[in-house]
């Protein structure tokens, strides 16, 4: 795991340029170009705003009003995880040329997808912060944001490593993953409020590392005060374990990757 982390540090320049390439390539040829990174979350916000105010209006718990803003605080980091995992599933197969023909540590590819999606998340943040400011809800607790982001980064890299390496051997994962992630979405407190959950549902969600990350984001941004330290710390441990597992599995399968993709 240490070796894996060191590889990533050693290749940071390459990761950096590949992330840059990923971002450039995505918007190449579009009129708005880089602006899409800001426009995208904005449009997302407008869409859900329409859904929640016109199609699905109604009273929600007072803790999560204005609901649209609450939802936005959760969906932004969730999108980061979701896109990272679904893209990581295919990344070794589509990048097979690199693995087979260039001296190139394969783990860079899934890591690049995670970072590229982190970039999208970061581009969306100013939009979110501006809206928060508009509602007058921006508090100093927002400064703690790098903490859950760091934990989520480690967790996502770990999962992306697992998913990408296994997909090479079992292409089925690519199809199953979409649904698993969807299920995971509904088992995570993005649409609803964890704080007032009771009983079995709460017990189950407690075991979900994303629960604690989302609660952290929501507290720091939406509620303006953070006290979920224990949950976040426990998630950090889980994230490190996930990274270790991912690194181990990837290393084990590394030699077969160049032959299987």
């Amino acid at each position: 795991m240490i070796a894996q982390a060191r590889t990533l540090v050693r290749y940071r320049l390459l990761i950096q340029s590949l992330v840059g390439r990923e971002l450039k390539a995505r918007y190449r040829g579009s009129v708005l170009g880089f602006f899409w990174s800001f426009v995208n979350p904005l449009l997302q916000l407008l869409t859900y705003g329409l859904v929640f105010t016109v199609i699905l209006p109604g009273r929600r718990q007072p803790e999560i009003e204005p609901y649209l803003l609450f939802f936005f605080c959760g969906i932004l980091p969730w999108t980061w995880l979701q896109s990272s995992l679904t893209e990581a599933a295919g990344v070794l197969i589509s990048g097979g040329n690199l693995i087979k023909k260039v001296l190139f540590p394969a783990e860079i590819l899934p890591v690049v997808t995670v970072f590229a999606n982190l970039a999208h998340f970061v581009f969306g943040l100013p939009v979110l912060l501006a809206v928060l400011l508009g509602y007058g809800r921006l508090r100093p607790s927002a400064l703690l944001l790098p903490l859950p982001m760091a934990v989520q980064l480690v967790l996502t890299i770990g999962l992306a490593l697992i998913v990408s390496a296994l997909t090479v051997h079992f292409r089925d994962i690519q199809s199953i993953l979409t649904h698993l992630v969807h299920l995971w979405f509904f088992a995570s407190p993005v649409l609803y409020y964890y704080g007032t959950l009771q009983g079995k549902a709460r017990a189950v969600l407690r075991l979900n590392p994303m629960t604690h990350l989302l609660v952290s984001y929501q507290q720091m941004l939406f509620h303006g005060s953070f006290d979920h330290w224990r949950g976040l710390a426990a998630t950090a441990v889980v994230a490190l374990l996930a990274f270790a597992l991912g690194a181990w599995l990837f290393d084990r399968l590394r030699d077969t990757l160049a032959e299987e993709v």
Partner: peptide
């Protein structure tokens, strides 16, 4: 440096 497949790492869009 290996000339195994030329331009293996090129990305077509950029």
């Amino acid at each position: 440096s290996a000339l195994i497949e030329l331009g293996a790492g090129f990305h077509p869009e950029i």
